[in-house]
Write a protein that binds this DNA or RNA. Structure first.
Lengths: 156, 156
DNA sequence: CTTTCTGCAAATGTTTTGCATTCAA
DNA sequence: TTGAATGCAAAACATTTGCAGAAAG
């Protein structure tokens, strides 16, 4: 059994447990997220599904992504350009992001030192740390070498 | 001569150098930023000025804040709740933020270890680091102790 | 005087929402 | 059958923009 199938089963259980209905739209949106390693935006998912002739609306994509976030299947991230990105949270441990300001490429990183410092800093300031947002913005190797053209990928 | 006055003079010079005009609105918005240590949002600045009977529009506040950011007097920050915050950049060195999810309180921090790690991580991934965004979200001491009531301060 | 700036109102762009219709259970 | 989910179009909301009139230099 593939890992994605397990996640589909898990999601169905979660829906049942919450007395929510298993609809074709919800399952299609889930699969779209599961079968992509990207950081997807709503409109992107919406277009993908429409291209596959899945009958769905933007409203439903938003509602389902929120639902997926609530059950912990998806991480909703704000890279500061006015559009939320959603990524599969199940298959990856916690990480932060490096974002190319020119081509929009997103690379993931995790640094135990930083995680540790965050905990210490919060405590020192009397805060109970619940979550964090850490993004590095810059130019990736290809963009620095002029191999790319400025894109609308992100202008965060 | 007060430090704020120096900044006012500096801003006037910057305007002249760029062939931009010294208007009452621009000066009022600058002073509003200079005389506050807070992280202000546009509407907040707009309301403050109107309360002081300064004739200004939201459009001008936005335009001037962008201008102040361009000349390096102000830092524009996105804490993820859909409204930009602006803070006086002249009087403070670089720092990041800890934000209380309940009362919206914002505390500043700077950590050399983290700054160092960010540089290393970027380099390791072939990125030229240009800027970063680092925010810790949690509950401040007072909110943890139940001394406050949930506010609309920020729901980032 | 000339050119920039301002204020207004309209536009923008993403996300949310009300409501009638459709559909899962 | 019936309450929940969907799709549509309208609303929301912060921010931006076009343009005519105001004002700086």
């Amino acid at each position: 059994m593939k890992i994605a199938d397990e996640h589909i089963t898990l999601f169905k259980s979660a829906l049942k447990q919450a007395s929510l209905r298993i609809t074709s739209q919800r399952m299609a949106i889930l699969e779209e997220i599961l079968h992509s390693d990207q950081h997807r935006e709503c409109d992107d998912i919406y277009s993908s599904l429409r291209a596959k002739h899945v009958s769905v609306s933007r409203a439903t994509v938003y509602r389902t992504l929120d639902l997926l976030e609530q059950v912990g299947f998806v991480r909703k991230m704000d890279i500061g350009d006015g559009r939320f990105r959603y990524e599969n949270k199940l298959k990856q441990p916690h990480h932060d992001h490096i974002i190319c300001l020119q081509c929009g490429k997103i690379v993931e990183f995790i640094d135990p030192h930083i995680e540790q410092r965050q905990a210490t800093i919060s405590k020192d300031h009397g805060f109970e740390l619940l979550r964090h947002n850490h993004q590095l913005f810059g130019l990736c190797e290809r963009c620095r070498d002029g191999e790319t053209v400025p894109s609308k990928g992100t202008d965060a």
